[in-house]
């Protein structure tokens, strides 16, 4: 199929940023979206032009590296799908596709479609862990955990830290990301001990990084490639409030 791509270029010769248009004539439906971009970059390199910078790593939908907004949707129009798992059969011959970086002030653009998401690491460093050293653990079966509880904790733990929730939110809030970690650990007995303090510290760091407030819009869940539920935000708020009252 033939496609027209409108791609955001920023940094280097493109300065503070602009859209650039490219035509691609040899796209097949079995290609992944990133492979389609590989083809574009191969063409650009052949023409001795600067290829489009975009991030990618595992290409299996799990590492959370790929990050771009496709036709207004973080990771593109297919629900619960990362960009690397999006395939061109979801597009039609003759389509024009607009590709931009994730946009949020806490995710500054580095180049073209590449943004800096180190703010997420700092939120985890603020408390997204169980304070246990290697070698201190008791037998793994010592504490039975109800199957449904373990499964709910797992659902929250599937967050891949890609930042689509932030890119989707009009407030650029990181509540879904932060709450997924708070919930994952708060639901398990191993993480319960520090649950309140964790919520306090992670929320404080989130604010410090310049992410916006949550106004219950829900686009984060709708665009999350792993379908992380906004219920986690409610759970985090509960942990946060009970922590605030008891401190």
């Amino acid at each position: 199929m033939k496609l027209t791509l409108k791609i955001w270029r920023e940094g280097g010769e493109f300065g503070s940023g602009k859209f650039e248009t490219h035509q691609l004539d040899n796209v097949t439906e079995h290609m992944s979206f990133l492979e389609m971009l590989d083809v574009l970059n191969e063409d650009l390199v052949q023409q001795k032009k600067t290829p489009v910078a975009f991030e990618h790593d595992c290409r299996e939908g799990i590492c959370g590296t790929c990050s771009m907004v496709i036709d207004g949707h973080p990771h593109g129009p297919q629900a619960k799908t990362t960009t690397c798992q999006l395939h061109m059969r979801k597009f039609k011959d003759g389509d024009t596709i607009t590709i931009e970086p994730f946009r949020a002030s806490a995710f500054p653009v580095i180049k073209d479609l590449v943004v800096d998401r180190s703010s997420f690491d700092r939120i985890i460093q603020a408390g997204g862990f169980v304070s246990i050293n290697t070698g201190q653990a008791q037998d793994a079966n010592a504490i039975p955990i109800e199957k449904d509880t373990a499964s709910a904790a797992f659902d929250a733990a599937t967050c891949i830290g890609c930042g689509a929730c932030v890119a989707a939110c009009p407030n650029a809030s990181a509540m879904l990301f932060t709450s997924a970690k708070v919930s994952h650990l708060a639901m398990l007995p191993q993480g319960q001990v520090e649950a309140k303090k964790r919520a306090q510290n992670m929320v404080a760091q989130m604010d410090k990084e310049g992410f916006g407030m949550c106004s219950n819009i829900g686009l984060c869940e709708a665009e999350c490639p792993k379908g992380i539920s906004v219920e986690n935000i409610a759970r985090m708020n509960a942990e946060y409030l009970s922590g605030a009252f008891s401190s």
Binding site: V130, A137, A140, N141, P144, I145, K147, A150, A153, L188
Partner: peptide, 22 residues
């Protein structure tokens, strides 16, 4: 054997049976 203990203590949500064990 220690690895599984360690991971569970960190909050790794391994699959469980209805009885709550791994």
């Amino acid at each position: 054997r220690n690895i599984i203990d360690q991971a569970v203590a960190q909050g790794v949500p391994f699959a469980r049976e209805y009885g709550g064990l791994l």
